[in-house]
C-alpha cells in the first residue's frame, strides 16, 4: 500500500509543477455548500483559461466540484488528497 501512495504523490507533484494557478482559494474548514459558493465567486474574477487552485477540507467537495464543472462549463484539471486536505485545479471555461 505504501509504495503506491508514494508513487501517486510523486506523479501529482510532477503534474503540478506545470500548473500555474492564477489564484488560490482557501476554502479549508468550510462546510457544504460554501466551498462551491466560494469557488463560483473566485472563478468569476478570472479570465477564460485562467487556473483556480482550491484548498478544501470538506469531504463532499471532491464529488461536488466534479459535478460543478460539468454544469458550469469549466474544467477540473487535477485533484489531490493528502492528510484530509483536498486540492483542486480548475481552468475557467
Amino acid at each position: 500500500m505504501v509504495p503506491i501512495v508514494v508513487q501517486y504523490t510523486i506523479l501529482i507533484k510532477k503534474g503540478n509543477e506545470n500548473m500555474k494557478a492564477t489564484k488560490v482559494l482557501d476554502a479549508k474548514g468550510l462546510a457544504c455548500p460554501m466551498p462551491i459558493v466560494k469557488t463560483k465567486k473566485a472563478i468569476e474574477g478570472l479570465q477564460s483559461g485562467d487556473i483556480l487552485e482550491i484548498h478544501a477540507t470538506d469531504k463532499g467537495a471532491k464529488n461536488d466540484l466534479a459535478a460543478w464543472v460539468k454544469s458550469t462549463g469549466h474544467e477540473l484539471l487535477e485533484s489531490t488528497e493528502a492528510d484530509g486536505l483536498f486540492k483542486f485545479w480548475i481552468r475557467r471555461g
Binding site: I36, V37, K40, S71
Partner: peptide, 12 residues
Amino acid sequence: FNIATASAATDA
C-alpha cells in the same frame, strides 16, 4: 438554503 445556494452557485 443549502440547495438554493448550491444551485445558484452552479449557474441555476
